[in-house]
Each structure stands twice: as C-alpha cells, then as structure tokens.
C-alpha cells in the first residue's frame, strides 16, 4: 500500500536519512524503532513532503511528488506529529475540524474520534491549550483520525505520557488495525512491537534490521544491540 524506496533526507551537509526502503501493507501496523536522532521523524517528514527528500514514495502504486503535505494528506496518508502539535489557542472542536482541512467529512468522522476518546467530546468547547498532556495527545490522534486515513503515520504517540495513558493509547492503536494501516514511530520498543506486525530498526539514518515484530521481541541480541533493553 505504501512503498518507500531509497528515501534520503538531508539538512545542508547533515544526512538525516541515508536511502532507506520499507513498505506498509494493507491493514498492517509497521513500526520504525530507533533512538533519538536516528532519523525517524525526518523519515515521516520526507514521506509527507514537509521537508525535501529524494527517492521514491509510492502510495497504492502511484508515485507521490511530495512538494507539500497537501498531496499525500488528500490521498489518505495522514500524519499525527511528534509533540502533539495541536492548535493551543483553538477549541477542541476547532482542532478536530481543522483535521478535515483537505480530507474527511467532519460530521461523519467526528463521531468515531469521539467514541474512541470520549474525553474529547466532554471538552468540546474547551481551549485545546488547557488540556492535560494525555488529553492533548488524544486530540492529536483524533485530529488525524477525522481525516479518515488509509495510512496513519504516528510519530511517538507515547512521548511524555503517564504509563497508564500510554497503555490506553496503545489499546486504541491496536483497535485501529481493522480500519487502516499504521506506520508507527516509537522509542518505546516493547510497547510498539507488542502491537506491530513488522518492524524496522533505524540507526544513524539507515535501516540496520527488519523483521516480524514477535520474532524481534524474542531476539535477545537484537534487543541488546539496538533497542537498549
């Protein structure tokens, strides 16, 4: 469904992503794991056209030009960025409405987001900046879901959240599997692998390992070498 080949992202002389290739299939949850600075976020930004990138990104067999995030988003690739990146001065509902800026019918998709995260419905009219960190993360995921994604690109959804909220978040993500493909980027490798089908390990901008998520969880050498567990 999503095929990335030889993706390269550089910022001036610094190469953040050195020609990586990976795929995400229909209804699959695929994780990209790696430490800080491994190039995870740059990979997503490159795919979405937020930063300039070279290489090929094909969605349903069609090559994306990636001049701006408008094109990938309108085709159904929706990003939920790191650090939530909600609009703090707008209300919860306005934030969700903005999620349908280029794709999705708010009236139809909002109910789905509200049913996954009932707290958002409760806080509908509240200014988003006044939500707690966990609620803001739910809003960020909700904002991505109202665009009715075919592939959801999730960047560090567990960052800075209390463990109980992380569990809640991953329970919701596991449920999404039936409706859409998910490309998950995480530092929390155990959590990510436990809901993923496959995973790639990114180090210094290159993929150093890939495989079935279950097998990776059991592979002691891999865990020690790359995932620091």
């Amino acid at each position: 469904m999503l095929e990335v080949a030889d993706l390269r992202v550089s910022y001036g002389p610094i190469h953040a992503v050195n020609g990586i290739s990976f795929t995400v299939g229909e209804g699959e949850i695929v994780s990209i794991l790696g430490a800080n600075g491994a190039g995870k976020t740059s990979t997503l930004f490159g795919i979405m056209g937020i930063v300039r990138s070279r290489g090929s990104v094909k969605f349903r067999g069609e090559e994306l030009r990636r001049r701006s995030p408008t094109e990938p988003t309108s085709k159904g690739m929706v990003l939920c960025p790191e650090n939530r990146r909600i609009f703090p001065g707008l209300t919860v509902e306005e934030n969700l409405r903005l999620g349908t800026f280029v794709r999705g019918e708010f009236k139809e998709t909002a109910e789905q987001a509200y049913s996954l995260f009932p707290i958002l419905k409760e806080r509908n009219r509240q200014i988003a900046g006044s939500l707690s960190g966990g609620e803001q993360q739910m809003l960020a995921v909700g904002r991505a879901l109202v665009a009715n994604p075919e592939v959801l690109l999730l960047d560090e959804p567990s960052l800075g959240l209390a463990p109980v909220i992380v569990d809640e978040m991953f329970r919701v993500l596991a449920d999404l599997r039936k409706k859409m493909a998910v490309l998950l980027i995480e530092q929390n490798a155990v959590k990510a692998l436990s809901i993923s089908d496959r995973a790639y390990v990114l180090q210094n901008g290159s993929i150093v390992h890939s495989g079935e998520a279950g097998a990776m969880l059991r592979d002691d050498n891999l865990r020690k070498a790359y995932l620091g567990m």
Binding site: I50, V78, L79, P81, N83, F87, T100, R143
Partner: peptide, 17 residues
C-alpha cells in the same frame, strides 16, 4: 490562523504552509 498557532500541526492537517 492554524499556521500561526503551530506550523507543524498545520502541515499535519495538509496545509501547504
């Protein structure tokens, strides 16, 4: 308005900033 509040957030919803 969205771009003024959060540029990355704006791009995440598909806005060409």
């Amino acid at each position: 308005r969205a771009r003024g509040q959060d540029p990355v957030g704006a791009q995440a919803v598909g806005i060409n900033t």
